Structures are given as structure tokens and as C-alpha cells.
Simulated assay, not measured.
Amino acid sequence: MLPQFKYTTLTHTEDVQQLGYILEQCYVMSSGDSEIFLNRIGLENFRIIHQNQQIVGGLATLPMGQWWGGQRVPMIGIAGVGIAPEYRGDGVAIALMQHTLKELHTQEVPISVLYPATQRLYRKAGYEQGGNFCIWEVPTESIQIREQLLPIQPVIPLNHEVFHDLYQQQAKITHGYLDRNQAIWKGLIRPNGQETVYGYFIGSPEQPQGYIIFSQHSTEDNTILRVKDWVILTNAAAQTFWSFLANHRSQIKQVQWKSSVTDHLTLLLPEQTAKIRSHERWMLRVINVCKALEMRGYPPRVQSELHLSVQDDLLTGNNGKFVLSVANGQGEVTRGGKGELQLNIRHLAPLYTSLFTPYHLQLTGKLEATETALVAATQIFAGDSPWMANFF
């Protein structure tokens, strides 16, 4: 850690203004946009770093949860990492991340997630690829689903709170989904002053079976309906979701939505006309090995024991041997054991999230394990491909 850096919370008015100036440069914001961003997240959730009494960078911490194996694990999202251009390349960014992770470790936060502008920086801090963020696209005229099995009810005025319960029902069964911070909910409904957002319940208002939140956009040669958020809880809701979108075909050429790499909703489409338009991976960092492993859910019929050996050069409390005992969908961690599966804290992330199998991680040199440990890890960390519907 470089001694000339000072890490603090964001409290002084002049620091707020300076951080806003830095973020507007980093994220190509219009003048004043940073104030909206800072206020939406809350000043208390920002951390800044000084050099010689001058603020040189900062980031936002978003307290949330993330669903793993049907259980909510407390998580801190990292967003808005920004370093003043004249200080880039001087070690400011890694110092800022290391200070933040040490603070979170002291608070016993289990895991952290972020979207990387560059993987190299965050890998140095112990993050690794954890799951997927995909945007799909389909020509509206090719949807060809006409029968609307359920009513569609507009939500006016649009209020994100009415969607929370439905969202949580889907989140609990979706590997990697967020228990969203309020700032993310507000960003869905009121992203900026130039975009109109629409929301509809799928099914009766008293017992909806899903919802859709979207906006519409026009370019020189295309018209696009962008589904900003969706929840589908029944087959009837899935059919109605597609028929509702198909009904826009006279004015909308393309529909875009967020989903997993293998999207089950596309099974209802008559042809393989839906394509992934963009795909990137978010990164996860295990901050507290014991809490992360114990708070996660596991396959309910698996009863097994995994002997881990973990190396963490930054958060030394994570170093050592651990025994993960799994039964009835729950895990218990004790110190000690044989250390039959050895890995760096960074490479624990894709194992923890089920992004890659233990065999694939061994094949790419991310872990070393006995055959017994590989079999146990494969059973314990079996799960759907992890993804989330939010970018932050």
C-alpha cells in the first residue's frame, strides 16, 4: 500500500464537487449528471482517496444481496470507480480498491461484485469472472406469438415498489440475481429526463404473474423496444409476454431484453431468430471465506465434504485450510482439514458462482485438487449458469 494515499468517506462539500468533476470526466457525463448519480446512491456510500490533500479518485459502495442456491448472501456492489486523469497509472486505483476491501472485510461482508472496465486492475484486488450479463435481440415480426392468455395492466403512475414482491420471487430461484439496492430500482424507473419508461403487470392486478418494464427508442434506421426489467412466473405469463411484444410489430422493428446465456424464454419462439447482441461478465470477490461459503445455498440432496486450501495476499484472515461440510442445502465451515483443493482467493470466485466447473478450473490452471476433491466440489457447486439483469 502506498503511504501517500489517504482513504476517507465523502463528507466535505468541496470533496463532493471534486469527485463529481472526476466522475464526469471518467464516464463522459454531461455537466451536472454527477450530482444526480451521487444523490441517487447516497453520499454516505462513497469512498474517496487523497494524495497530498487533493482528492484523486473515488468509488461507490452499494449494499445489496445476491441469491446463490436459493439463499441471499449479503453483498457490496462496487460502482463508479473514477480516478483523475493526471493520477492514472500511479497506483491510485489499486490502493483505493485495497482500502475498500479491507474496510469491507472488517465489516464481515461476505462477497463483492463489480463490472470491470479493465479486468487486470480488479484481478490484482482478488476479483475474478463470476457471471454473465447478456442483452438479447429479436426482430419483432419474427416473434409470431399472437394468443394473449392473461390481461396486461399498465402501472400509472410508475412506481418501482409495486414490483418488488414479484421480483423477489424470481430472484430467489435465479442463480446470481440481486436483492437490489434502492438506487438500482430508481435507475430502472427514472434513468434520466430524456427516456420515457413504461410498466405493465402481466395478469390481474390483484394476482399478477409477472411484469414488464420497457422504453422505446428511434434511430435513423431502426426502432427498438428495450425491456429494462421483466419477471415471468408462469407459462401463461411467458406466452403473454411474447404476444404483448409481438403486438408492437407495426411500429417496432427490434426487441431487446436482458437474460442469461441460455435464455429459456426463447424456447417459445418459433424459430431461432433471437440472438445475443452483447455479452460481458461481471466479477466477484470473496471477502470473507467462512461467511460466503456458509451463507450460500447448495443442492438439497448433496451430502459431501470439501477440504479447501485458500491463499489471499490482501485479506490474510482468508488464508489457510477450511473444511466445507454440506447437507440439506446448507454449508458449515470449520478451520483445518486436508487442503485437498488448493486455489487463490481470486479463483474461488468462479467456483463459488458455478460459472465454471472444478474440472475446467483445474484444466486452466486455476486450482489443484485430488480426484476426490474434484468430485466433491462438482457436486457441491453444481448450479445454473449465473447471471443478473442489472448493470451498475
Rank of each mutant, 00 (worst) to 15 (best):
residue 1 M to N: 09
residue 1 M to T: 12
residue 4 Q to S: 11
residue 7 Y to K: 05
residue 8 T to C: 08
residue 13 T to K: 09
residue 16 V to Y: 08
residue 18 Q to C: 10
residue 22 I to A: 03
residue 22 I to N: 03
residue 24 E to S: 15
residue 27 Y to I: 02
residue 30 S to Y: 04
residue 42 G to C: 05
residue 43 L to P: 02
residue 45 N to P: 09
residue 46 F to Y: 15
residue 47 R to W: 08
residue 49 I to T: 06
residue 51 Q to W: 07
residue 56 V to T: 09
residue 60 A to R: 06
residue 61 T to K: 15
residue 63 P to I: 08
residue 68 W to I: 11
residue 73 V to D: 06
residue 73 V to Q: 05
residue 73 V to G: 08
residue 73 V to T: 14
residue 74 P to I: 09
residue 78 I to L: 15
residue 80 G to Y: 07
residue 80 G to T: 12
residue 83 I to Q: 07
residue 87 Y to K: 04
residue 88 R to Y: 05
residue 88 R to F: 06
residue 91 G to P: 13
residue 93 A to T: 07
residue 96 L to H: 05
residue 104 L to P: 04
residue 114 L to P: 11
residue 115 Y to A: 13
residue 116 P to D: 10
residue 116 P to T: 09
residue 116 P to Q: 10
residue 119 Q to E: 11
residue 124 K to P: 00
residue 132 N to V: 01
residue 141 E to L: 12
residue 143 I to V: 12
residue 145 I to D: 02
residue 146 R to G: 01
residue 148 Q to E: 11
residue 151 P to G: 05
residue 151 P to R: 04
residue 158 L to A: 08
residue 158 L to W: 03
residue 159 N to D: 15
residue 164 H to E: 12
residue 164 H to F: 11
residue 165 D to C: 03
residue 166 L to Y: 04
residue 169 Q to H: 06
residue 171 A to Y: 03
residue 171 A to K: 02
residue 173 I to K: 12
residue 173 I to R: 13
residue 174 T to R: 02
residue 181 N to D: 15
residue 182 Q to W: 01
residue 182 Q to V: 11
residue 183 A to I: 06
residue 186 K to C: 04
residue 188 L to I: 14
residue 189 I to C: 13
residue 192 N to T: 07
residue 197 V to R: 10
residue 199 G to P: 14
residue 219 T to E: 12
residue 219 T to M: 01
residue 221 D to I: 10
residue 225 L to H: 01
residue 227 V to G: 03
residue 227 V to W: 03
residue 228 K to I: 14
residue 230 W to H: 14
residue 238 A to Q: 15
residue 238 A to Y: 04
residue 241 F to T: 03
residue 246 A to Q: 03
residue 259 S to I: 01
residue 261 V to P: 03
residue 264 H to Q: 10
residue 264 H to A: 11
residue 266 T to A: 03
residue 269 L to Q: 10
residue 270 P to E: 13
residue 276 I to H: 03
residue 277 R to P: 00
residue 277 R to A: 03
residue 279 H to K: 14
residue 280 E to H: 11
residue 281 R to V: 11
residue 287 I to S: 07
residue 289 V to G: 00
residue 289 V to H: 01
residue 290 C to Q: 13
residue 296 R to W: 02
residue 298 Y to F: 13
residue 300 P to R: 07
residue 304 S to E: 15
residue 305 E to P: 00
residue 307 H to E: 09
residue 308 L to S: 06
residue 308 L to A: 09
residue 309 S to N: 10
residue 310 V to Y: 00
residue 312 D to I: 01
residue 317 G to M: 05
residue 318 N to E: 01
residue 319 N to R: 01
residue 320 G to K: 01
residue 321 K to M: 00
residue 323 V to T: 14
residue 326 V to S: 06
residue 327 A to M: 07
residue 328 N to R: 11
residue 328 N to A: 15
residue 336 G to A: 01
residue 340 E to K: 11
residue 344 N to M: 01
residue 345 I to E: 00
residue 347 H to S: 13
residue 352 Y to K: 10
residue 353 T to C: 13
residue 355 L to P: 02
residue 356 F to D: 08
residue 357 T to Q: 04
residue 358 P to M: 07
residue 360 H to I: 15
residue 363 L to E: 12
residue 364 T to W: 07
residue 364 T to F: 09
residue 365 G to T: 06
residue 367 L to R: 05
residue 374 L to N: 07
residue 375 V to G: 06
residue 376 A to M: 06
residue 377 A to N: 04
residue 378 T to L: 01
residue 381 F to R: 03
residue 384 D to H: 05
residue 385 S to Q: 12
residue 386 P to G: 11
residue 387 W to S: 12
residue 390 N to F: 06
residue 391 F to Y: 12
